[in-house]
């Protein structure tokens, strides 16, 4: 690990100021320290934000939840309000990582974790995300775990989070604090950038901008589920995952909020798919057409070709589960 300056931030404003002059925030550190050991990330200064007052989960005025950026993945998954009103998020958190990691990983850090693309981790190989302009080794390499949607010729990395996929389905928003003390609120979709020509730029956050909370809207009615398909039963990243919230009325789908993990550089959501499903009675044909729309522009790179049919089957299985009562 390269040497770095270490500072414990006393308050959010000091943290944002320190980070704006070149520091990197550290919270749980489970991904950042791993990358620092490998010298994939080499921050000159670490700003330890663990002492900041961002560890609470509060109810908002409109019945939602404001989740402090430092709330751990285990505390969030276990929160009684979350388990009752937003179970898809609790399920997604419990499907991720291990008990030890969930105790350390934070809400803000989980959103900002880096891809697990093998070539991003291997400093001997070209990678446009790690070393812009060097090329993408993954396109013709071991790309089994990588993306089929939202990629560019410069990068096919996936965002590895389960938590963020459920938050995307729930319409979560991210609150931030900038160096100049101004705050802003971003839809989760607005936080992430697609790789395009600059895969090293992953979010719209400015230097020193600190995620302070994630806000969930009030619970919606309907069935919720998080389905994760992976190479082993536990403690593995998703090959494909689906966070689904589906509501039925009189035999027709009245709400279909669907987000996908393992397929793209960010939690993926496609309004056309949801519009197609909404207002219609569930059927094999309808679900197939939804999958057609979702995967219309999907592109495999060899070893990850299987993700395209796997995504179709996973989506159809989730839709069957969430509409099951009405079909009986």
């Amino acid at each position: 690990m390269r040497p770095f300056d270490y500072t414990r931030a006393e308050n959010t404003e000091a943290a944002a100021r320190q980070a704006a002059s070149g520091g990197t925030f550290i919270a749980g550190g489970t991904n950042l320290l791993d990358l620092m050991k490998l010298e994939v990330m080499t921050p000159e200064a670490l700003i330890d934000i663990n002492r900041l007052d961002l560890g609470e989960i509060e109810e908002t005025e409109d019945g939602g939840l404001r989740i402090g950026a430092l709330v751990t993945n285990s505390d969030l998954a276990n929160d009684a309000r979350l388990r009752k009103g937003w179970p898809v998020l609790s399920r997604a958190l419990l499907a991720g990582a291990s008990g030890q990691l969930r105790n350390k990983a934070t809400t803000g850090g989980n959103l900002l974790q880096r891809t697990r693309c093998l070539y991003f981790y291997d400093r001997a190989m070209p990678c446009n995300k790690r070393a812009p302009g060097t090329g993408c080794s993954a396109k013709e390499g071991f790309n089994r775990i990588l993306a089929v949607l939202g990629t560019s010729e410069h990068c096919i990395a996936t965002h590895p989070s389960d938590m963020a996929v459920a938050m995307r389905a729930l319409g979560a928003e991210v609150e931030t604090l900038k160096e100049d003390r101004s705050t802003r609120r971003l839809k989760l979709d607005e936080l992430y950038l697609l790789p395009g020509e600059r895969p090293d730029q992953e979010t719209v956050l400015k230097p020193g901008e600190l995620i302070t909370a994630v806000v969930l809207p009030a619970p919606v009615t309907g069935k919720q589920t998080y389905r994760k398909v992976r190479d082993r039963a536990s403690y593995a990243f998703a090959l494909v995952s689906v966070a689904g919230i589906v509501e039925m009325e009189d035999g027709r789908i009245t709400r279909a909020d669907l987000a996908f993990g393992g397929l793209a550089p960010k939690p993926w959501r496609n309004a056309e798919v949801e519009d197609l499903l909404t207002g219609n009675a569930p059927s094999e044909d309808l679900f197939n057409r939804a999958a057609d729309l979702l995967l219309a522009e999907a592109k495999g790179y060899g070893a990850n070709d299987f993700k395209i049919p796997l995504a179709r089957r996973t989506l159809m299985s989730v839709l069957n589960e969430l509409t099951a009562e009405a079909q009986q």
Binding site: I26, G29, D34, D48, Q100, L101, N103, K104
Partner: peptide
Amino acid sequence: GRRINACLTLACMHD
């Protein structure tokens, strides 16, 4: 009281 991976955290973060 909570289990963690001691390899993935800095000692100075645990003052």
